[in-house]
Simulated assay, not measured.
Amino acid sequence: MTKKTTKRLSGRFDYAALDIDAQSRTQLEAAAAGIQALGRRSTDQAFELGDLLEQASELVEPGTFERWVSQRCDISSKTARNYRAVARNLSRYRERAVELAVSPTVLFHLASAPEEKVEAALAHAEEHDGIRVSEVKALLADGADATSKELNGVELADIGGLSGLRAMIDLKTKTGIAAFVENAAALAAAVAKVLESKPEGKRLQKKGLIPLLEPLARAAKRSLGNVLLLDAPGDIDARKLSDNELPIGSRWFRVFDMLDDMGDREAWPEARELEVWLDLTVLPLLQWATCRTKQPDWPLEAPVASKSADAVMRSGLEALGGVVRVEPPSLDPADDVGAALEDYQPPAFLARKAPAADEDGSNVLPFNSTEARSGLRKPRALMRKPAEASAD
C-alpha cells in the first residue's frame, strides 16, 4: 500500500469526532501501519494480523472498532472477525499450522471448530502434505451431502430435498455460533473492563453503563436466539424462549434470560446490587457460554432450599441423641393415686445436676432432685393425695 493510499485512508476516519484520546490514536495508527504492511497472504501473517486486530479492538468500543477497521484499514468487519478468531482460538496450533502452510481461508473455518476437529484437520494436513478448503469443509460437515459441501449459502438455497435443507441449517448454525461467540466475548470484555475500572468504595452508576452494555447484550441475545429459536421472528428482542425451544430453568435458558435482562435497563438490579450481579452472575455466565472446553463447570451455585420448621426441630432433637416423645402431664387427680413423685425420672435431655444448697439460692426445684428444702413446699397438684380410710 502506497503512502498516498495510507494518507487517504487515515483521513477517512475522524478520531476527534469519536472522542478517542491522543494515546489511543497513536496506538491505533501504529496497529494500522502494521496491518497494512502485512499483506495477509501467509499463515504466519494471518496470525500476526489477528493479533494486531485483537490489540486494536481493546483500544476502542466494539461498534467503533468495526468502523475503524473498515475505514482506516480497508478491511471488512467480517474479515476482521475471521482473523481475530484465528488469533484468539488457534494460537496453540500456530507453530503446526505455519509448518504445514495452512491457508488463511482454512484457518477461518477451523477458528470456530471444536478442538477434535482442529486436531483432525491438522493430522490430515500432515498425512497428505496440506489441506484444501473443500477438505476442511467436508471434515467439519459431519456427513453432509457431498454435492453441497463446496457450495455457499446462495447456491445452497437452490438445492432441493432434505440434504439441501440440512446443509442450509448447518451453514446457518455455524455462522450463528460464530456471531454469538463474538458478541458474547465483546460483552464479557466490556463488563470486565467496567469492573476493573470502578473506583474503590464507589458504586457503579447505571447512567454511564446502559449506553455501553445494553446494545452489546441485545446483539448477543439476538445471535443466540437465531441459533436456539425454532422460528426466526423479525424482532426477537421482544419475545421469550418457550419451553418447547429450551427447557425453562436449564443452563442455556439462564444465559438467554440473563442477556434478555441485560438488554432491558428496566430489568437491571438496583445500583447497590449492580456490581455483584455483573461480577457473580453476568460475567461467569458469559464465560461459561463461550468456553471452548468440553463440559465446562457450571459457575453458579445451586440454590439451597430452606428447611421446614419440622425438619429443623427433628434435626435438633437428633443432635440431642434421638427423637424423644414426652407425654404431657395428666390433669386428672385420680391418675396420681399410687404414683410416687420420687420414682419419676425425667428424660435424659432434660436432666441436670442438682446444684448444692449453698450455690443456688433460687426457689426452683430441679427435676431430678427429690430432697426437701427448708421453706419449700411442693405444689398442691404434685402432692400425693392421702389414702381414704377403709370403711372396714
Results as ranks from 00 to 15, higher is better:
Asn368Gln: 10
Leu110His: 07
Leu18Phe: 13
Tyr93Pro: 00
Leu28Val: 00
Gly375Cys: 11
Asp158Arg: 11
Thr6Glu: 00
Leu259Ala: 03
Ala46Gln: 10
Arg67Gly: 01
Gln45Phe: 07
Gly361Gln: 09
Asp129Leu: 06
Ala80Thr: 00
Gly164Ile: 11
Gly321Leu: 12
Arg88Pro: 00
Ala146Met: 13
Cys291Arg: 13
Leu350Trp: 08
Trp252Tyr: 13
Ala123Asp: 14
Lys378His: 13
Ile20Trp: 02
Thr147Ser: 07
Leu165Thr: 11
Thr6Trp: 00
Ala319Gln: 13
Ala167Val: 15
Val323Lys: 12
Glu200Ser: 10
Val337Glu: 07
Asp19Pro: 01
Phe65Ile: 00
Arg41Val: 11
Arg222Val: 08
Val102Arg: 00
Ala157Met: 14
Arg81Leu: 12
Asp264Ala: 12
Arg166Ser: 09
Asp261Pro: 01
Leu216Ala: 02
Leu300Gly: 14
Ile159Ser: 03
Arg254Phe: 05
Ser374Asp: 13
Val136Trp: 07
Gly225Met: 05
Ala144Ile: 12
Ala389Val: 08
Ala186Ile: 01
Val106Tyr: 03
Arg40His: 04
Ile210Trp: 11
Thr79Glu: 05
Val136Ala: 04
Gly338Phe: 11
Phe256Gln: 01
Gly153Trp: 13
Arg41Gln: 12
Trp298Ala: 02
Ala32Tyr: 00
Arg325Ser: 08
Ala17Gln: 10
Asp279Ser: 14
Ile20Asn: 01
Val326Ile: 09
Lys149Met: 11
Val98His: 06
Arg314Ala: 06
Leu195Thr: 04
Leu204Gly: 04
Asp335Phe: 08
Asp142Thr: 03
Gly160Ala: 13
Ala192Met: 03
Ser250Arg: 07
Val98Arg: 09
Gly321Cys: 07
Leu246Cys: 15
Arg12Ser: 06
Asp358Met: 12
Leu151His: 12
Asp260His: 04
Arg12Tyr: 02
Asp142His: 15
Lys240Glu: 14
Ala340Asp: 14
Ala17Thr: 10
Thr290Met: 10
Ala192Gly: 08
Asp44Gln: 14
Ala184Trp: 01
Phe13Leu: 01
Arg132Ile: 03
Ser10Thr: 05
Asp235Tyr: 15
Met383Ser: 02
Glu214Tyr: 06
His124Pro: 04
Pro215Phe: 10
Gly338Cys: 09
Asp19Gln: 09
Glu270Gln: 15
Ala125Val: 09
Arg239His: 11
Pro211Cys: 06
Ile131Trp: 02
Arg132Phe: 06
Lys207Tyr: 01
